[in-house]
Amino acid sequence: MTKSAGDKGKRPGELSSEDRTHLKRRLSGLGERLGKVRSRDRPASDENQRGRGIGYALRMSLDMVLAVVVGGAIGWFLDRWLGTAPVLLLLFGVLGVAAGFLNVARTYREMAAEAREASKGHTAKSVPFDDDED
């Protein structure tokens, strides 16, 4: 450990103070690296977040539309079965619209909760909205 070329009066096995600070720095560097390696196992959330967001976007629009279609289809089949021409089709169509909004609202709530979770601790300096854009 001793890198002593100049100081001759030193006995073997003795550490100079600069040697010791050097050692300590290396140790703390090692500690940092160890911590980094350990924390690397946690999934990086930012990219993940974006991927999930796109997944949500793909879900919501189709969910909304297809709820109406499914409601309409149920109404149409019930109409055919019960012989109540357009009544149930319209009724279930309206219920389908409601179900579509319910779907979207539910997905949105999920998504917003996740976004809040992700944006916790994100506080950067914001740029004021003063200059014109067009």
Binding site: G53, R59, M60, S61, V65, V69, G100, A118, A124, S126
Partner: peptide, 30 residues
């Protein structure tokens, strides 16, 4: 681009708006 720190928080709203806008088009397609 003006306020990147707020962007993350509004990502959900962006997707909601996107979904609603797309839903209108999908209705036409249906």
């Amino acid at each position: 681009l003006r306020n990147p720190s707020a962007a993350q928080g509004q990502f959900a709203n962006l997707l909601l708006g996107f979904a609603l806008a797309e839903a209108t088009g999908l209705f036409g397609l249906v």
